[in-house]
Amino acid sequence: MAEYGNKKVLVVSEQEIAHLNEVMKSFNSNISVAMSYVRHTQKLTFRELEKRFSGINGNTLKRYMQQSYQSMRPIHIVAAYSWVTMVPMTAFYYGFKIKEFYRGMDDNAVEALICLGRLPTEMLNQFLNMIFSMLSDTSKSEFLEFRQKLESEYGVIEDHSDLLPPEKLDIEEFAIDYYRSVAVTARQFRKEYNISVETASRLIGLSEYQYHVLEDINRIVPMPASIGFRAKLGFKLDSHANFTSAMKTFPEFHKLRQVQHVRDSLLVEALRRLKHHERGPMTKVLISLSELYK
């Protein structure tokens, strides 16, 4: 992003848009694979998932998790599913490469991390302290620096029991709140960076008409999950969580996304600093903890 005078300007090249179009060709398949992987890892049946939502049935969710299903996966469905499973929304964009989201972790550690969304903050801090005590002085200093920088940007990790999803999430109410927030924040973002509707629509893969609908707070129309990933890549954002910051019915969802980012980042950073022979036993501790909170 550049600045001219007092105005921020985002310049997007044709090459960047072409690259995005190429990257997104397998997006629907990636989403289905990741959603299915999380369901299997958490040992959730479709019957159990049905009980966690109202307004969507198990058969519809099953179709979204099938690679052969050609229709789009709506972004509000992926968001709601990420909340119910307590897995960061961005992780679902990775598909077969979901393990890359948890960089440097082995299969066992990744599966444990996917099941740790409900782990109490006090227990998480105790686990981090255990790892910290095993690090060299240099690694301790580097980890502390990483943690301070992360928490200065996103806030310190805190008790998130009040950010858990409702026992039964109303998918229609969630969709209304989600898309209204996107409409408000997308328009603010576009105006702040002097981005035209034509550029914004091409960047996130919508027609100009669809983009106008996206920014209309009075029209609730399901949009493809790909718009989130394209926005993150195309606008070069560290996160697209700000687009949920205007949610009023379910503000806990937005807050949780920030908390999840801090929790997961700290766990992965701490684990990767262990020596190989230390990481295995600590991963077993992590797996034991994950079993308690599935």
Rank of each mutant, 00 (worst) to 15 (best):
D238G: 15
R230E: 03
F250V: 03
A270L: 05
F243K: 05
T249S: 14
D264C: 04
F235A: 08
F229W: 13
E215V: 13
A270H: 05
V259E: 08
P224K: 06
G280N: 08
P222D: 04
V285C: 08
A241D: 15
R263A: 08
F243H: 12
R230N: 00
G234N: 12
I220K: 06
M247A: 14
P222N: 15
A270S: 12
S245H: 03
I217V: 14
R230V: 07
P224L: 14
M223F: 01
F235D: 06
A246T: 07
K275S: 01
D238K: 15
L233G: 02
E252Y: 02
L237V: 03
R230M: 04
V262Q: 02
P281T: 07
L256W: 15
R272F: 00
F253N: 02
S239H: 11
M223C: 10
D238V: 15
V268E: 04
D264T: 15
L233Q: 14
L266S: 10
F235E: 04
K284V: 10
I227N: 11
S226E: 08
P222Y: 07
K275Y: 02
K232P: 05
L237S: 04
D238I: 13
F229K: 10
P224G: 06
L256K: 11
D238L: 15
T249L: 01
K236E: 14
M247G: 12
T249K: 11
L256C: 07
S226Q: 05
H240M: 07
S226A: 11
F250E: 01
L266K: 07
V259W: 12
V268L: 01
F229C: 11
N218T: 06
S245L: 12
H261G: 13
L271D: 03
A225L: 02
K255A: 12
A225P: 08
E252C: 05
F250W: 01
P281W: 11
V259L: 08
T249M: 05
V221F: 07
N218I: 03
A246K: 15
S245M: 09
Q260N: 13
L274D: 04
F243A: 02
Q260R: 04
R230P: 03
N242C: 01
K255M: 10
N218L: 12
R279Q: 01
F243I: 09
V262E: 10
F250D: 02
S265G: 14
M282V: 06
